[in-house]
Design a binder for these strands. Structure first.
Lengths: 232, 232
DNA sequence: ACCTGAACACCGTTCAAGT
DNA sequence: ACCTGAACACCGTTCAAGT
């Protein structure tokens, strides 16, 4: 029972992460735990266990669970792709942003809730805001118009992401007692077009609508005579 | 210490709710607790205490906390106003729906998260779906188009509601370390138009855009010659 | 039928202690 | 500096018991 010379190390880590604990290792394990077991499935104790460490060790790297989840958010945001200015016209850059934002929800349905629900004003978030506002500026909008469209784009992006989650995953907290469609003829008729398989198409349709509208607003702003939608 | 004749009842209820526990009383107390202390602030034990009852008594009315929260969702949904068919043209009915859906977020910012995050297929929800799809049908859309626009409206409604929450309430889990605006000139310029005070105006602007687009789609669907937007 | 009380298996977090 | 172990004040839920 004493110290055996060649004793196996008592810590086992499920990931290929070894050596001293790092913020990086903690965050990626946390994210994969959330992906696997949901937000409620993540506890400091289980996260510690997955890293081969006591729960309290985590507090040496993050002051609280809330702060840790904030860092997970930042990590999610880093997945959004923001193609550089020169590469694409401004409205196409916006399209890329909205698409890849929604992809976060597709890839991390449980974790995406964090982005939707928690307010965030971090450097990573501000970089995204700046990117979007910059594209709007290049499209010819002033600060007021940009702010409005910024919000509109945000609504669409987070609404689309949430719909992605809500429609794919069944609710673990509640058994699905599906109401009979007899009483809801319109819902019955639309049901087959509302299935998860159609989501991508619906999303792209909505995105086109959104961008068309922004294009239209740009034309109005410039005056109808020298409208140049081709450059957007 | 025995039974005194005129002993005050040992239960005290914070609400004006008396008599035997009812689903109604539990739900309204639960909602006001969530409004006051947030979703995480609601526990079965505290809810019981607020009702002057042991936590376990609640399980006689709801099988689990999840089921209780589901019933709270239903209650929130009941707040949405759906003016009857004859009273307003279809697109104006949609406007009412989206507006009042967002008002749930304004009135119950903490509880609204439930609606946004959890999937729900209950009778109350289906009634709302049917209402929206019916308005779209009256506006002349077939099942495919209706399904698309239904989703689009849903994105906008829940995105707008969430933005309402995120921008009003500071995050309790995370101290706000606001990044310096020096590095973000566009954000700095738009900041004053993105304040909470402007939210109503931005929302109405976006809603107009959404409905304009739906009107346009309706015209395209009917063929350009007999377009009658006045009736929408 | 409706509620209680004790118990079980969990939480996040604090704090003193180890190396 | 980095981690442990025990402890505190909570959770949701089960189960047997009370009336």
């Amino acid at each position: 029972m004493g110290s055996t010379p060649d004793a196996l190390p008592s810590r086992r880590r499920t990931d290929a992460v070894r050596g001293p604990l790092s913020r990086e290792a903690i965050l990626s394990t946390a994210l994969s735990q959330i992906d696997a077991n949901g937000l409620d499935g993540l506890s400091m104790r289980k996260l510690g266990a997955a890293l081969g460490v006591e729960a309290m060790a985590l507090y040496h790297h993050f002051p609280s669970k809330g702060e840790l989840l904030g860092a997970v958010m930042e990590r999610l945001l880093a997945e959004v792709s923001l193609p550089p200015r020169g590469l694409l016209p401004p409205l196409e850059r916006l399209r890329c942003f909205v698409r890849s934002y929604r992809q976060i929800a597709v890839r991390h349905p449980h974790a995406f809730v964090l982005l939707a629900v928690r307010r965030f004003s971090t450097v990573a978030a501000f970089e995204v805001y700046e990117y979007v506002l910059d594209a709007l500026a290049e499209a010819g909008f002033d600060a007021v118009q940009s702010a409005r469209l910024f919000r509109l784009i945000g609504y669409y992006a987070s609404g689309a992401g949430l719909a992605e989650i809500a429609n794919r995953a069944p609710d673990p907290h509640r058994p699905d007692t599906f109401p009979s469609l007899q009483r809801f003829p319109r819902v019955a008729a639309a049901a087959r077009y509302l299935r998860a398989g159609n989501q991508d198409a619906v999303f792209e349709f909505g995105l086109d609508v959104l961008l068309d509208e922004i294009r239209r607003q740009a034309r109005v702003g410039k005056g109808a005579r020298n409208a140049g939608p081709a450059e957007l």
